[in-house]
Design a protein around this nucleic acid. Structure first.
Lengths: 377, 377
DNA sequence: GCCACAAGTGAATCCCGAG
DNA sequence: GCTCGGGATTCACTTGTGG
C-alpha cells in the first residue's frame, strides 16, 4: 500500500477493508448464530438480514441460567422470565450484528407482533437508527379460523442504519422504477411463499416460516450494491442466499439445524445468477456522471447570450461565457441566481431556468439530457 | 343484591361495578394525563384509546422540491430528552391505563416507528397481552421529498387485552360485514384526516396530528359495546369523543392544552354525523389490487433478462432487475420506453410489450392477469 | 354553474462531497 | 469534526381562482 493511501486511512480512521478471501463467502456456518458471528472480523459485511425466532420458547438458547423448573402457579412470572430471556438473546445477536456490520452497512429484521416490538426497542437501545419500518402485507394470509381477532395479514420489517449520522445505501431510483414510477412506500404487498417456491420433502414443508424470495429481492435491490456481502444469522433454508446469488451479492449464513443447512445448500446450488445486463438498474441523477452547466456552453449546446426565463416568465437572465448568469445587476450560478431572485434558501437551476427549444419552453435540464444521450458511450 | 350474585362476585373476585354517576363521563379532564387518570377509580373503563406523543426527533427544516416549507410537528409536547425519559413517561401512563381498565377491557395505542416499538415492549412488560397489531395504510401519505428512504406510508396500532387469559370484546360479525363479508384484516386502508373533517382556525390546522374519525369508528365498532366507557388520555381535539358520541359509547378525555380542549368541546357538541364520504371510505371494499410491473419481476413471473417485443416485432427490449427496460442505449419504464421508441407522447406499456408465453406472443398484461388470479385471496 | 388549472398540504427522524 | 455550495427531490387530495 502506498504511503499516501495509508496516511489517508489513518486520518479518516477507516480500517483497511477485510480481504474477501478471509471471509466465509457462500458458506453456511454451523451452530449457534452468536458463536458463529463471533468468528467473523469487525466491519466486514454490508448488510445483515435477520429472521429471528418469533416465539418465546427458544429451547436451549433461552433455558434459565440455573435450569430450574417453572411452576405452573408462577406463570405470570414465567412470562417476565421469558421476555427477559428473549431480550438477552436479542441483545446478544444484535450486538454481534452491529459489530460485523461496516459503518455504512444496514440491518434488516423481520418479525410479528410477538417479538418485533422487543427487537425494535432493543436495536434502538443498542444504537441502531431506524430508517423505516416496512409492512409486508400478505396477499393471501391464513384466515383467523376462530373469528376471535383480526386476520393477522402482515409482518413487520425494520430497516436500520448503524447510527443516526451513518450513511447507508438506498437505491431510490431502482425502487421507483420497480413501483411504476411512484416512490416505493413502506407497505409492500407480496404473496406468501407457496407453490413450487416452497421447499417440501415427503409432502411436508421443510421449514415452517420460509420467506418468499420476492421479499428478499426487494430488500437487497433497495439497500445493497452488486458485490456487497449479506449476512443472514438465521439462515433457515437459505432464501437470503438464493436471492443474493441471483442478484450478484455475496452471502454468509448461520444455521444450526442440519436439515435446513442441507436444504439451503441444494437450493442455492440450483439458483441461477442473473447476467450483467439484467442486473443493471436505473441509476439516480446523484450517481450519474455530472455535467456542469459550463460544459453545455463550452460544447456549444447553449450559446453565450442566450436568454433564460423561469417557467412563468417572471424572471429572466442572460448566459455569460463562463456559464454564469446575469439578471439586471445581479449575477451568479444557475442555482445561486435562481435562489436569489426567488428569495429562496436554495434552488435547482436545472429545473428553474428554461429556454426556447424547438418552439417549446424547456428546462435547461432537458438540454443536459440531450447532451448526455449524445455523449453516452 | 342477591346472595347468589354476591357469592358469584366473590368467587370471581370481580369488584362491584363503579356507579356511572361517579365517573366524569363526557368530560375532558384538565391537566397531565397521568395525574388525571389517578383521579379515576380502579377498573372503571371498558377501553382505553391512546395517541401519545411519537417523540419524532426531527432535525432541521424540510423543504419540498418546489421550495415550499413543510409544517412539521414542533410542539413542546413531542419533545423528550432521551429514550429513557420517553420510556419513563410511557410506563407511567400505561400503568395508570391498566389500573383504570376493567379486567375484560382492552387497550389501543397508535404510533409510528419512532415510538411504537418502545410502547409495545413496555406494555408487554407491564402485563398487557397483544391481540393484534394493526397497520393503518395511509391512502395519501406525505411523500419522501428527498428520495432518501421509503415513503413512510403507514402508522401502527396495537390492540391488547389486560392479560393472556383475559376476556375481551371483539365484534367479529360487525367487522366481517364492514369488510364485504370477508374477515377484517390487520391492515386498514384509510385516508389521512383532511378536508372538512380537519379542524381549522384562521386557515391553520388546530392540531398537528388529528386522527381520522374513520379510524376510531372501526376501532370502537370492533372492540366495544354500545354504552361502554372509552377513555382517551391524549384527547387532543377529541376525535375519540366525537366518534364515541356518534356510536353511543360513553367517553372520558384527558387533555392539558386549553386550545385543544376548547376545540374538542365545540366539535363534540356539534356531533356532526360522519359525512357521506367518510362512511363510504369506511365501508368500501379493499382497494383494487394494483400490480406494478416490478412486482412481476420480484415474484418470478417475468425473469430479468427476458426479451420483450411489440406486437409486430418492430421494437425489442430486455427486462432488468428493477423492472426497467433497456433497448440499445435507451432505458426506461415499460411505459416510458414504449413511448420513446414510438416517438409518442405516451404509451400503455402493459398492452404494447409482448413476450412468448406457452408458444404464443402475449401482452405482458396477460401475465399480470395470471398473477392476480394466483394471488387472489 | 361548470370546467380547467394552479396552489396548498399532510406525525418527516429527508443531501453530500470537497476542502 | 466543520462549512460551503452544487444540485437533487413529491403523491394524493383539497381548495381557490379565472374564464
Amino acid at each position: 500500500m502506498s504511503q499516501v493511501l495509508l496516511k489517508e486511512r489513518i486520518r479518516l480512521r477507516t480500517p483497511a477493508p477485510i480481504p474477501r478471501e478471509l471471509l466465509p463467502l457462500g458458506q453456511i456456518l454451523d451452530g449457534d448464530c452468536i458463536e458463529a458471528m463471533r468468528s467473523l472480523p469487525d466491519a466486514c459485511v454490508d448488510m445483515v438480514f435477520a429472521d429471528p425466532p418469533y416465539n418465546l420458547q427458544l429451547g436451549g438458547d433461552l433455558a434459565r441460567p440455573d435450569g430450574s423448573h417453572v411452576d405452573a402457579v408462577t406463570q405470570a412470572w414465567d412470562k417476565f422470565d421469558s421476555f427477559a430471556a428473549y431480550d438477552r438473546f436479542t441483545r446478544e445477536w444484535l450486538t454481534e450484528a452491529r459489530r460485523v456490520l461496516k459503518p455504512d452497512g444496514s440491518l434488516w429484521v423481520i418479525g410479528s407482533y410477538h417479538n418485533i416490538f422487543r427487537v425494535g426497542a432493543m436495536l434502538q437501545d443498542i444504537g441502531f437508527w431506524i430508517l423505516n419500518d416496512i409492512v409486508w402485507r400478505k396477499a393471501n394470509p391464513m384466515p383467523n379460523f376462530k373469528g376471535t381477532r383480526f386476520t393477522n395479514a402482515h409482518e413487520t420489517l425494520i430497516w436500520a442504519s448503524t447510527g443516526e449520522k451513518a450513511k447507508y445505501t438506498f437505491n431510490y431510483r431502482a425502487m421507483k422504477t420497480l413501483n411504476d414510477e411512484l416512490q416505493m412506500r413502506s407497505d409492500w404487498v407480496l404473496p406468501i411463499c407457496g407453490g413450487p417456491e416452497r421447499l417440501r420433502k415427503d409432502g411436508h414443508k421443510v421449514h415452517p416460516t420460509q420467506k418468499p424470495e420476492a421479499l428478499l429481492y426487494r430488500v437487497m435491490l433497495a439497500t445493497t450494491e452488486k458485490g456487497d456481502v449479506v449476512l443472514d444469522p438465521f439462515f433457515g433454508t437459505g432464501t437470503t442466499g438464493a436471492v443474493a446469488k441471483r442478484l450478484g451479492r455475496e452471502w454468509i449464513g448461520c444455521e444450526r439445524d442440519g436439515t435446513y443447512r442441507e436444504a439451503a445448500r441444494e437450493r442455492i446450488e440450483m439458483a441461477l445468477p442473473l447476467d450483467e445486463s439484467a442486473l443493471k438498474t436505473m441509476q439516480s441523477k446523484r450517481t450519474a456522471p455530472k455535467v456542469a452547466f459550463g460544459t453545455l456552453i463550452e460544447t456549444g449546446w447553449i450559446a453565450p447570450g442566450t436568454v433564460l426565463t423561469d417557467r412563468k416568465g417572471r424572471h429572466t437572465a442572460s448566459v455569460r461565457a463562463d456559464g454564469s448568469l446575469v439578471s439586471g445587476t445581479q449575477g451568479g450560478s444557475i442555482h445561486g441566481l435562481g435562489a436569489a431572485l426567488q428569495g429562496a434558501p436554495s434552488c435547482n437551476g436545472w429545473t428553474f431556468w428554461h429556454l426556447q427549444h424547438e418552439g417549446e419552453l424547456k428546462p435547461i435540464d432537458a438540454i443536459r439530457q440531450l447532451y448526455l444521450l449524445a455523449t453516452e458511450p
